[in-house]
Design a protein around this nucleic acid. Sequence first.
RNA 1: GUCGGCGUGGCGGAAUGGCAGACGCGCCAGCCUUAGGAGCUGGUGCCCGAAAGGGCGUGGAGGUUCAAAUCCUCUCGCCGACACCA
Length: 806
Amino acid sequence: MPQEIEPKWQEIWVERGVMKADDSSPKPKYYDLVMYPYPSGDLTVGHARNYVMGDVLGRMKRMQGFEVLHPFGWDAFGLPAENAAMKRGIHPRDWTVENIAKGKRELKMMGILYDWDREVTSCEPDYYRWTQWLFLLMLERGLAYRAMAPVNWCPVDKTVLANEQVINGRCWRHLDVEVEKRDLEQWFLKITDYADRLLDDIALLDKWPTKVRVMQTNWIGRSMGAEVDFSIDGLGGEKVRIYTTRPDTLFGATFMVLAPEHPLVGRVTTDKQRARVHAYIEKARKETEIERMSTEREKTGVPTGGFAINPVNGEKIPIWIADYVLLTYGTGAIMAVPAHDERDFEFAMRFHLPVREVIAPPGGPQGELRSAYVGPGVMVNSAEFDGLDAAVAFERITDSLEARGIGTRAVKYRLRDWLISRQRYWGAPIPVVYCPTHGIVPVPAERLPVLLPAEYRPLSEQPDWYRTKCPIGGEEARRETDTMDTFIDSSWYFLRYASPHDETQAFDPELTNHWMAVDQYTGGVEHAILHLLYSRFFTKVLHDAGLVSVSEPFMRLFNQGMVKRFGQVMSKSAGNGVSIDELAGAQGADAGRIYEMFIGPPEEDVEWNDAGLNGVVKFLQRVWRLVLEPEQIAAEVGPTGSRVDASVLRRKVAQTIGRVTEHYDELRFNTAVAFLMELANTMQDYLHGGGARDDEWESAVRTLVKLLNPLAPHVCEEMWERLGEKGLLADASWPTYDPAAAAEPKVVLVVQVGGRLRDRLDVDAGLSEAQAVQAALGSEKVRAALDGRGPSKVIYVPDRLINLLP
RNA sequence: GUCGGCGUGGCGGAAUGGCAGACGCGCCAGCCUUAGGAGCUGGUGCCCGAAAGGGCGUGGAGGUUCAAAUCCUCUCGCCGACACCA
């Protein structure tokens, strides 16, 4: 099998524009998208596995008659470029451009067909101009705002991070570094405005992995409850508003807890308690997020000395402060119901606070509680609500609060607004100007892009760049010197592929609406929340703006597993990477492609094993010889080999078409490869049985080449040409089959007696139950097992199994 | 702690209620040999047995079913996500 065929066909595919997606094709469209990578210069066989999957699917869809859009691009802004640049003393752009060139060469080497004319690179002005435009659109729609807030500061990367980029209180890129809280004025996108739709529409994503849907649901974290006002004793009309998901337990509130940072803490604290409260607040402030968030540690808190009045029963309850109540969730204040909340129970035990049962479990009131009871039950100790089911009381009590004007139904989310400011150079500048008289003024769309200055230095240290004129008044003004989170860049790139060269708009709505939604999106599960949630948010905003017709961008999502080596995820820094160069260089791109797909189930993590490549190489060589040198294989027949006749071959071909097509479609590539190997084995047995190289054989050969083509396109094109076929195999039609031709005329009927396997019979397919019983009783083994006891009951699964019960 | 996933030969894995181990790697034996890390043929879960045959077997224990790797309950181990969200 000649080696030089790979560059040959790669050139021909480019010349004939095989990968070009035609916007005006009458064929049905298929948008086959892979997550565009960060150009780290470190593309490994792990990345390639993802892209080969997309390519196999795309190549099959093309042969099936779809107009396939299979584009590629680069998520090219971001910190690693800056870090590498600092280390080497070069500009982040140079490093990025170099890596993109390298990555592109490697992908071409693997024979992956992308429409490179549609390549997008997020760090290029012709792209980030529109990223900036989208920011202005958000601003215009009231979805971008600037606010002073406690933000997550990563001391290593010297920038703020979004909530989604904080992992267990640490920086997502430096898992050993804790984030610090800083009060800064920053830009936010109001993703919380879309919380309900982002949550509700998860129901539409039935072709997404359950895992990702669950993760997004939990991340948004919607809860339904009520906000209730408690008056503060002795402070006139002053009130504290609490949030609860259990208004049905209102009568069980025995104390109240405020977050230490709650604005009313100073007012409710008595002089006697002031020193203690102050000390506690100081201590809480000094603790890191990680210490404070730990559920392991014992609860702490101090009484303020103040009291609140429970509005449902007029009872005076003490107000405490404790750091298990977070200022950032709900109202930063809770009513504590120790009988029916585990945290409150723990706190009450620790500080000897009263516990009052208000929901009785099915067995009746427990009296003394040993732990919080959070299950369903009947109301007790709750005045006029006693005897009601708790779920009913939830509604009644809330109605009553609303009627009295002291409470209201409320919905809360775990999701916070998206902090997008980054104090970094290598990103899209936020296109606003701070004017002395007009305040925050957006840069007019026609003056975009706001270009990054050429010099690599923090923008806030480049006065020549940030000094500007106010777009309204023309007076001296200052540009925003923060850049945008790179996740903004990747939240809309899939829309740009439809019209990547449009110089008048971010995307041409007509073309984007033609190609959207993405039919298949393939990438790593590490994006389950960040990228996928943000992209859904952007799509919905653009949908509302009338620019995108779909409200969900990705129809079908697939998360491929990671490729590991020596038990660790491959990477250059870990020193265990296998590069695409090495893979394609070893035994050729096709062998590498098949091996990537055969190594294990696509959604599972797999351990790379160089030795496994040999089996695939042998398979490819065998196919080559079957297709082009069948005489040689026929001559190799051994004395005892298995042999099959034409009818077996014909059926095997038909069955393989069905199974391979189905498994490619479902991205079950490992089993698809196995089926192709089986077909090759059967074809070999056919030759060994003296099978004629007639039309039957020629058809089998062509079917094998077509079915294998998405996996091994170079070798298959070469074989196709050598078979004398005209035209590119890439453009040939996908094989179809007659299900009748795939049906087996004889089947192995498994005979069980009392559920135990006793015999296997070769019988005609389609036997009736009576015929099957007769056949089974014809077996001596079966009769012996029955031992004279006639079958009292028969379970018959046609063409598979018969179970006779003695 | 909560939620989710996974656990099958020497190895990667297949089978989603109906023959456990497809396909491949590795290994064993044989053939061919221009002698090679090529090709071909057969074998290869474990135990008993000369064989015929029989028994056991999908992390563990129990259950449902004529029938369970598959469904249910409990449990152990590994991995992932979230983690005081009221």
